[in-house]
Amino acid sequence: MAALVLSFLIPAYNESARLGATLDQVLTYLRAQPYDSEVIVMDDGSTDNTVAVAEEYFATHRGRVATRVLSYTPNRGKGYAVRQGLLAARGAVALFSDADLSTPIAETPTILRPILNGDYDVVFGSRALQGSVIGQHQPWLREASGRFFNRMVRLVTGLPYADTQCGFKAFRLDVCRPVVEAARLDRFGFDVELLFLAHQAGLRLREQAVRWNDAAGSKVGLLSGLHGFRELWALRQHQRRGHYAAALACSRALAASQCAAPARGLV
């Protein structure tokens, strides 16, 4: 069996209504690529038939792309779901995407290529950089709260990035796995934690402008924002208590060794 280049991860919570259409777009795209890949749906304790939809789709659309469903109960949060997918991924690079494909699947090369070329270890989509294209905007209150949250992220963590919350991020797994294993935040703050740990470990991060459209039915709301601020505080507490120290040292050592660099020139 050829080595997998990409693991495409889709965290899902009560996504039965749109998951079939999402999987159709993702698998159609990946089957047309020159590299081997897999798709993993991480069901985050859904109370609808998300698991049944995913399993039925995969059973009736077999092809060269490997597919899996990871499911558990109860609901733990998107961060927990993404972490399970990253730890289960078998590709050289793992990319997670929101189930609504608010960032179109066609943006994959923009995120994947810099890692496969050996230039970066983490590349993440951004809606705030020059070159970003937002078709359908979020409601004004959500956009304003997102900008405020980003200012708080910069203040609390020192991260220099304009958008940490876009749901389209890719990780070179050989050097990022210790960071993923050390992560502890399960909800809205998980993106910040992963980027913070990768940055602290001295990994090479790139914030990349992407296309993005707000999708109806988003599960991000006021409660998510409150979770985010609480988790920013928790992140600082974990750092002060040294909970991340061993993982950061491990990632630094892996990065310094330049081990297992992903293959180049595949996208």
Rank of each mutant, 00 (worst) to 15 (best):
59 A>Q: 12
17 A>E: 15
55 E>D: 09
216 A>N: 13
153 V>E: 08
220 V>F: 14
206 R>M: 11
256 A>C: 05
152 M>P: 08
27 L>W: 02
139 P>N: 04
83 R>Y: 02
78 K>N: 13
162 A>L: 13
16 S>I: 04
66 A>F: 08
17 A>L: 14
124 F>K: 04
153 V>G: 00
60 T>N: 09
196 F>I: 08
252 R>S: 11
73 T>F: 06
207 E>M: 00
126 S>H: 06
209 A>C: 00
139 P>G: 04
251 S>I: 07
97 S>V: 14
8 F>H: 13
38 E>W: 11
22 T>A: 09
23 L>T: 01
125 G>I: 07
217 G>M: 01
176 C>V: 12
86 L>M: 03
17 A>D: 15
99 A>G: 04
98 D>Q: 00
261 A>C: 13
203 L>M: 03
38 E>R: 11
249 A>F: 04
11 P>C: 06
120 Y>F: 13
203 L>G: 08
149 F>S: 13
251 S>P: 14
70 L>H: 06
68 R>W: 08
105 I>W: 05
264 R>H: 11
127 R>S: 08
146 G>Y: 04
111 I>L: 06
173 L>I: 03
217 G>N: 05
222 L>M: 11
117 N>T: 07
20 G>T: 04
109 P>H: 02
216 A>W: 08
49 N>A: 06
137 H>V: 10
28 T>I: 09
260 A>V: 07
25 Q>S: 08
157 T>I: 01
38 E>V: 11
88 A>Y: 12
112 L>P: 08
